[in-house]
Computed example of a mutant assay.
Amino acid sequence: MDIREVDLNLLVVFDAMARHRSVNRTAEAIGLSQPATSAALARLRSQFDDALFVRAGAQMEPTPRALELAPAVRRVVDTIRAEILQPAGFEPASAQRSFAILMPDIGEVAFLPGVLRRLRHEAPHVKLQAVSKPREAAAAALEAGDAELAVGFFPDLQKAGYFQQALFKTSYVCIACARNDAAGARMTLKQYLAARHIVVHPDGREHFLDRFLEDKGWHRHVTLELSHFMSLLALLPGSDLIATVPQDIATVVGRHVPLKTIELPFKPPTIQVQQYWHRRMQDDAANRWLRGLFYEVNRRDAGATLPE
């Protein structure tokens, strides 16, 4: 017998006949008419080249071939019902799986603390892996399933094939060591450009502010370039360097080292922080739960700063 010729609906009829031993009771159990059930039984007999069920008194008794097939057919029908036909779902409380999230180091300190607090109570066995990749590799990671979600500023993912959800808008702040006497509360543009700057390029990326300044023809005196925002914790204290960073970074660094904020001599650009996922994950129950969690924890109203 060629499997392509097997109608799975017939296996449902077979399973019901094996349990009820009656065409009428089988028809009632599976919601078919009596003639349709009789026709299905005829097709089963033809496909298996066996009578399968024969009348004996008031019942249809199985043949030896039907008795042999019955346990296997039951397993197939139960598997289809339990594992294939059930709607996709995800139970956070009992789930034991790992999710990879694309984010820069700013995301690790800004987005993850609140998420981890929620996981402890709602999904204690779920693990998260924060992944940092170059800009050109982010899309490939989401498309290949190497990451389930990207959270942060990813303008390259604003294209066909991706969904996005806004979390909040933020901007840039200029910070310096609180003991940096060379940096006042405000600077002229000339003073700002001439100051000694630390510039952070996560994963070698040019940041949004770099393009903003370049478009205006303004060039800063860059003393140090870094790959990680968190290195500012060690490099700003005791130095005469300044750094213009996203507001969340200024907030996090300021919680650990004494800082002063310098009023910028221009209106900085706004950053739209979002989460992104590939379209093939749009209807995945686990991904839907994950992005819902990130949204609930990290969404902010306009002007709100990073919570404790």
Rank of each mutant, 00 (worst) to 15 (best):
G31I: 02
I30H: 09
K127Q: 15
L10A: 04
A144P: 00
A42E: 01
L85R: 13
I80K: 08
E61H: 09
F111M: 12
I30C: 12
H125D: 13
D15Y: 00
L67I: 00
A56D: 14
L44F: 07
D15L: 02
S38D: 05
G145W: 13
K127Y: 02
A140N: 10
Q47K: 10
P71K: 04
S132N: 04
I80F: 12
A93G: 12
E136A: 13
S38P: 00
A140L: 13
A36S: 14
R65K: 15
A144V: 03
S38H: 11
N9M: 10
R21H: 15
T79C: 09
R19L: 11
A140I: 11
L85K: 11
V12M: 03
K133D: 05
A88F: 03
P113V: 06
P92H: 11
S46I: 04
A51L: 10
V73G: 02
L67G: 03
A139E: 12
R120L: 10
G89H: 14
D146W: 09
E122D: 15
R120N: 03
R118V: 14
L112V: 15
R19Y: 01
A95Y: 09
G57T: 09
D105Q: 06
A123E: 08
A141E: 07
P104T: 15
G114P: 05
S33F: 09
A16Y: 04
R25A: 14
A144Y: 01
V115S: 09
H125E: 12
A29G: 07
R55S: 13
P134H: 01
F53Q: 03
F48I: 01
S98C: 15
R45S: 06
D15K: 07
